[in-house]
Computed example of a mutant assay.
Amino acid sequence: MPSFVDRPAQHYVGARATIAVTEFATIADQIPRIIGLLAQHGLAPAGAPFFRYLVIHPGMRFTAEACVPVEGEFTPEAPLITGVVPAGKYVLSTYVGHPDGLFGATKAVLDWGAAEGVRWDSTEAEDGEHWAGRLEVLNTNPLEQPDPTQWSTDLLFHVAE
């Protein structure tokens, strides 16, 4: 059952791409690169890596970022970027299972929100649905738990104030 949580703003270093669902690995593969870059500069991640979905485009395409949370100032070289996930109230649902099930888990949260009258912090535009904060937080390190059916992912959706 989803719940409401308050989250502080979260700074991150990320890589952004507009891709089809079938191309997701191109963005997901950036996380180890970003963690390695931070380590080269003596920085450790300030939390679990996550994916931030900025725009859900028609036709199963989306603009997303692979993100690693950081504290303090760090400016990476392009094409890496920095960003901030906004503070505020979020709906949280934790999914445990293979990443192939995330689409269904996300739909379940959005359907729950519609039934409960939750107003998401998102806007419709010609190019798709723009989100202020729509995250998949990767709670499981695949190097420590190689079985993807055991991976835990927090789904977080920013609520309109």
Results as ranks from 00 to 15, higher is better:
2 P>K: 09
60 M>V: 05
123 T>V: 15
157 F>L: 10
118 V>T: 13
33 R>Y: 12
9 A>Y: 08
100 D>Q: 08
109 V>E: 07
13 V>W: 09
150 Q>A: 07
113 G>L: 06
155 L>M: 09
1 M>N: 12
2 P>S: 05
161 E>D: 14
43 L>A: 05
32 P>K: 01
55 V>P: 02
17 A>K: 07
131 W>L: 10
27 I>W: 07
161 E>Q: 15
95 Y>L: 01
19 I>W: 09
85 V>N: 12
139 N>I: 05
71 E>G: 12
41 H>Q: 10
93 S>L: 08
118 V>N: 10
128 G>Y: 11
39 A>I: 03
86 P>H: 10
98 H>L: 03
9 A>P: 13
49 P>I: 02
48 A>Y: 00
31 I>S: 00
16 R>Q: 13
40 Q>E: 11
70 V>G: 03
73 E>F: 14
127 D>F: 15
25 A>Q: 06
19 I>F: 13
11 H>F: 10
62 F>A: 05
36 G>M: 00
38 L>V: 08
6 D>E: 15
44 A>R: 09
23 E>S: 04
131 W>T: 09
133 G>S: 05
55 V>R: 03
25 A>Y: 08
100 D>V: 07
60 M>F: 10
15 A>V: 01
111 D>A: 11
129 E>V: 09
87 A>S: 15
50 F>R: 09
55 V>Q: 04
61 R>C: 04
142 P>D: 04
111 D>L: 02
157 F>E: 07
70 V>S: 04
59 G>N: 08
18 T>D: 01
120 W>S: 05
133 G>A: 14
148 P>L: 13
75 T>D: 12
94 T>H: 01
96 V>C: 07
36 G>N: 05
1 M>K: 13
91 V>D: 11
43 L>G: 05
51 F>L: 10
149 T>Q: 05
49 P>D: 08
23 E>V: 02
33 R>Q: 10
142 P>N: 06
1 M>I: 10
107 K>N: 03
70 V>F: 15
160 A>N: 15
128 G>L: 10
117 G>D: 12
84 V>W: 13
110 L>E: 08
146 P>K: 01
44 A>G: 06
31 I>D: 08
79 P>K: 13
109 V>R: 07
88 G>H: 06
116 E>Y: 11
